[in-house]
Amino acid sequence: MKKLSVWQVVLLLTMISACKSAESQKEWCVPEMFLAPSNFISGNSRDTNFDEPEEGGGPTLFFPAEYLAERVSGYEATVESSGGSTLKQPMHVSISSKAYKATTFEANQAWRLTEGVPLYSSSSKDEFGWDVFVKGTSHDYSFWGQCYDDFEGGFTCMRTFEHAGEYLTYNVDKVNVHSYTGIDELLGEKVAEWRCK
C-alpha cells in the first residue's frame, strides 16, 4: 500500500476538519434579526485575560421585547425602574449542550419567590444567587433556574430548561416570571424551527 506524504496527511486532516466545520455551520438556520451581536465576535486573540467561549451548544438568540409581548400571554414589554426609567424587556437566550448544576432543595428551609407562581428557593437570601425550584403537582421540586436580588425590591432570573437534549437559558425580570411556561413554549418552538432542515 502506498504511503502518504506528510503534506498529503495534512491536506487530508484539513479536509476532514473543513467537513466537520461545514457540518456544524449547517446546524442552525436562524434569521439574522434573532441572532445576538455576540455571535459575530470570535476568539480573544489579543487579550488573553478573557476566557475562551464555551464549545458546543448553539448560537445566542435575541428576542425583542415587543416580539415577546405579542406572542406570550401576560409578557410585559417594559418595566419601570426605581430610577424612573422605562426599561425594555428583550431577551438573550443561550443554548448549551450541558446541564447546569443546582444545589439540593431543602424543603424545610424553602421560601416562596413571589406570589402567583409555584417557585421556591432554599438558598439563604444573603447569597448572591438563589437556586430556584418549581413545585410540581405531586409536591415534587425540580430545578427551575437562578434568581438574583436587584436590591430595589425586585429580582431578575436566569431560567434554564431542557429542550430536545439541549439546555436553554434566558433572562427574565420579576414582572415577567409568571409567564415562564409561555416563554419556554415559544423558545422551544423557535429552536426547533431554526434547526436547518
Partner: peptide, 20 residues
C-alpha cells in the same frame, strides 16, 4: 467565573437595549 468577550457582549447589549 472568567467571562469571554461573547458573554460580556451579551449582557451589555441586554442593558443597552433595556435603555433603548
Amino acid at each position: 467565573g472568567q467571562l469571554s468577550l461573547q458573554q460580556m457582549a451579551d449582557y451589555h447589549h441586554q442593558v443597552f437595549r433595556e435603555f433603548n
